[in-house]
Design a protein around this nucleic acid. Sequence first.
DNA 1: TTGACATATTCCTTATTAGGAATATATTTG
DNA 2: CAAATATATTCCTAATAAGGAATATGTCAA
Lengths: 125, 125
Amino acid sequence: MTRTAHPTDVFNAIAEPRRREVITVLSDGQEYAVNEIVLRMKVGQPAVSKHLGALRKAGVVTVVKRGQHRMYRLNPASLKSVYDWVKVYEWYWTHQLGQIKERAERKALERLIRLDDGSKPTKEE
Amino acid sequence: MTRTAHPTDVFNAIAEPRRREVITVLSDGQEYAVNEIVLRMKVGQPAVSKHLGALRKAGVVTVVKRGQHRMYRLNPASLKSVYDWVKVYEWYWTHQLGQIKERAERKALERLIRLDDGSKPTKEE
DNA sequence: TTGACATATTCCTTATTAGGAATATATTTG
DNA sequence: CAAATATATTCCTAATAAGGAATATGTCAA
C-alpha cells in the first residue's frame, strides 16, 4: 500500500515543494494565468497544470475561465486546517519545556511498569 | 521522477495521516515506547517503527534508549517551520479579502495584456 | 545460558507520483 | 476557416512509499 492520504488532503497538497512554490506565487492574493506561473517556475507547463490540478482538488486554489486563460487564485481559508493543527504546538517552542521533562519521564516509567505487569494502559490524568 | 521532497522535509513528514496520528499521541510532551504507540494505533509494530523512523529523520521526534525500550518524544520546535510558513496566510482568513478581488482582477488583466504583447512580465508594484 | 520481550530491518507487493513528450481541446484572431 | 495560443490530458518511465510477514538484533530476567 502506498500513501494513505487522500489526494484531496491539504497536508498532502502542500507536501510538494513545487506546489508550495505555486502557492507562494499566488500569495499576493491576485489572479494568475497558468502561463504566468510557468514563467515564474522551473518546470514545464504540463507539470504546472498538474500541480494546479492537485491544489484545486484539495481546495487550495480556485480557477475561473477568463477568455483563453484559466485564472488561478489562492484560497487561503483552505490552509486554516494546517494552521489550526500546527498551532497547537506553538506553545511548546514559545515556552520552556525543560521542566516537563523529568515529570514526563517518570510518568512514562509508570506506564511501562503497568504494561510489563500486563495491565492495560490507563488514561492519562 | 517522483516526489521531489527530501524525506527529511517536515512538510512531507506530516503529510502522512498515520504520522500525524503518532504526533498526536506524543502531543502531551511525554515519552512513549514504541509499544505504547502501537497500542494506541491501528497499524502493526513494523509500520509504526517505520513511521517513527521517518519522523526522526525529519527531526520531528527524538529517541533515547531506556533499557529494553526506545522512548520517543515529540520535538515541537521542528514544527515551527510549518507554522511559520502557514502563518503568513492567516491574515487572509481573519480579514475580508473581498475588496481585494476586483483590484486583483484588474491587475491580472494588465499583466496578461503585457504578455500578449510579447513583453516580459514586469515586477509587481 | 535460555527464553521472553521490544524494536528495527529486510523482503515483497501494490499503489502513487513527478515530470517530460506528445497530443487533444478550446479560444482568439486574422 | 486557418493559424496561433493557452491549457489540460494521456502515455511513459523512474522513483518512492505503505504495510504486512518474516527475521534479525538487542536487552532483560530467571
